[in-house]
Simulated assay, not measured.
Amino acid sequence: MSDTPTFDDQTRTELEAATFRALMHHLLDARPDVQNIDLMTLAGFCRNCLSRWYQDAAAEKGITLTKDAAREQVYGMPYADWVAANQTEAGPEKQAAFRDAFAQNVAGKS
């Protein structure tokens, strides 16, 4: 028998939402220095993936959300502003590792 408690749907949704907010706070406020390219290479997802998942979740609820609007939700500001403030240039090795990770984790998964 598992020690994992079971929750009603509302409680589970609230816990998942709080977890997502904590992740977003961590990526936005505590670690904006962590580059998307490194997230993708190491974890198989990045902030852009989160914004795409956010957009997909909105669509499932019948809410039309543009790519830019979804990114603003995840980045806490317009994407171009976040890039200007936080993104650094990636060398050829990081770019190659990103391409591999992207192909494994994102490409073809729509």
Rank of each mutant, 00 (worst) to 15 (best):
Q35H: 11
D56C: 00
K61C: 14
P78G: 05
G76Q: 03
A96H: 11
M24S: 07
P5A: 00
P32S: 05
P32C: 07
A69T: 10
L28P: 03
Q35D: 08
T13L: 11
D8Y: 03
K61A: 15
R47E: 01
A97R: 15
R52P: 00
R12L: 15
L27G: 05
F102V: 09
Y54C: 11
K94E: 10
F98C: 07
G108I: 07
R71V: 02
G91C: 02
G76T: 01
H25I: 08
A57H: 12
R71G: 13
L15R: 14
D33V: 04
G44H: 02
D100N: 13
D3F: 01
Q87E: 10
N105L: 10
I37H: 08
A17S: 13
C49A: 04
N86V: 02
M40H: 06
I37F: 04
A107Y: 08
P92L: 02
N48K: 10
W82M: 00
Q95V: 06
T19H: 11
A97Q: 12
M40K: 00
T41W: 06
D100P: 00
V83Q: 04
Q10A: 14
H25W: 15
W53I: 05
N48I: 02
D81H: 02
S51T: 08
Q73H: 13
A18M: 12
A57N: 04
A103Y: 12
Q10C: 03
A97D: 09
M40G: 01
L39P: 01
D68I: 03
A18H: 12
K109C: 05
E93M: 05
D100L: 14
G62W: 09
D81C: 01
N105G: 07
P5H: 01
Y54M: 10
Q95H: 07
G44E: 08
F102L: 10
R52T: 13
W82K: 01
K94C: 00
V34P: 02
D33C: 06
C49P: 03
V83T: 01
K94Y: 06
N36H: 02
Q73C: 15
D56S: 11
G91I: 01
R71D: 15
P78F: 09
M77F: 07
V106T: 12
A107S: 12
K67M: 09
D33M: 08
R31S: 05
Q35M: 14
D29S: 13
